[in-house]
């Protein structure tokens, strides 16, 4: 009899635990759904609006499915200066990528592999560079750039963008190298490599996916940056700077088209490298 009672109470307990699990599951799913729509809904609106004709964009009710009217996009692409700005954005982003990976990789390697005086301070300083808001830096930088003749050049702008991207490049690559056991390098040294050969033959292939991801990250940082671009370039405007200035007076549908063009590369790149971004932040399965 008492045995039976125990069974019943056990069952109740299991039931209760089950219910609790269900509540948690429901909470988890709904908050995940909320966060996803937080990100996706504006993007969705942007796409719908960019691919609709002017009447639909300005009219009400809004269409739920875009009518795939390419007119606005076409108009936007042919808008005077857009193509040039697009090219400038690309060039600046590639420069930024090269500079921040070129400088960030050795710095990250040093942080990961060497003990040196002031290492922790150095790590902090890297983060501190992000403590100064761009609006604060942009004007003094503009003055300096004018003095050294870097004003209104894509290279100058890339330097600023690289300064923004470098902290990430350094920290990401350093955690990347930390994740590669030092014994692999040591094994390579013993088997006949010098430091450089071991790096190229063993560390590099293993770090490459992560390095690519952090390169893309640098690219996106530059591509998306507005403020410095708007202040530091006049004739060589990047797409963001161009849009900020020329589109403030344009009709809504053209703004949407511009917005879409702006976010596409970022979304595409992040999509392509998402696996590596996850793995270098230690989220996903390795």
């Amino acid at each position: 009899m008492s045995n039976l009672n125990q069974d019943v109470s056990l069952e109740q307990e299991i039931q209760a635990a089950d219910n609790k699990n269900k509540v948690w599951k429901w909470l988890f799913i709904s908050s995940a759904a909320f966060m996803i729509s937080w990100i996706l809904f504006p993007i969705y609106l942007l796409i719908v609006s960019a691919l609709s004709s002017a009447e639909v964009v300005n009219g009400w009710p809004k269409a739920f499915v875009p009518e795939f009217d390419m007119e606005t996009l076409q108009f936007f692409m042919n808008y005077y200066g857009v193509l040039g700005a697009l090219k400038n954005s690309l060039i600046a982003a590639v420069f930024t990528m090269v500079i921040s990976i070129g400088l960030g990789t050795p710095a990250g390697y040093a942080l990961a592999r060497f003990e040196f005086r002031g290492k922790e301070t150095f790590r902090m300083m890297i983060l501190l560079t992000r403590a100064f808001p761009m609006p604060l830096l942009a004007l003094p930088l503009a003055v300096i750039f004018i003095n050294v003749g870097l004003d209104d050049t894509l290279f100058g702008l890339s330097l600023v963008h690289a300064a923004l991207a470098l902290p990430f490049a350094v920290l990401i690559t350093s955690s990347l190298f930390l994740g590669i056991p030092v014994e692999l390098e040591e094994a390579a040294w013993v088997l006949g490599c010098n430091r450089w050969q071991a790096f190229m033959k063993v560390v590099m292939p293993l770090a490459l996916p992560g390095l690519t991801a952090s390169a893309v990250f640098a690219f996106v940082i530059s591509w998306n940056e507005v403020f410095a671009a708007a202040v530091l370039t006049i004739n060589n405007q990047t797409l963001t700077a161009f849009l900020v200035q020329s589109l403030s007076s344009s009709p809504a549908e053209v703004k949407f088209a511009g917005g879409l063009i702006l976010i596409m590369p970022a979304i595409l790149f992040l999509f392509v490298v998402r696996k590596y971004l996850f793995s270098m932040w230690g989220i996903a399965n390795r």
Binding site: P181, E183, L184, E186, A187, A188, V190, L191, V202, P205, L206
Partner: peptide, 12 residues
């Protein structure tokens, strides 16, 4: 030549 405790076999 050296054999390491964690083997250090090159994964790639």
């Amino acid at each position: 030549a050296m054999v390491f405790q964690n083997y250090a076999v090159f994964p790639h």
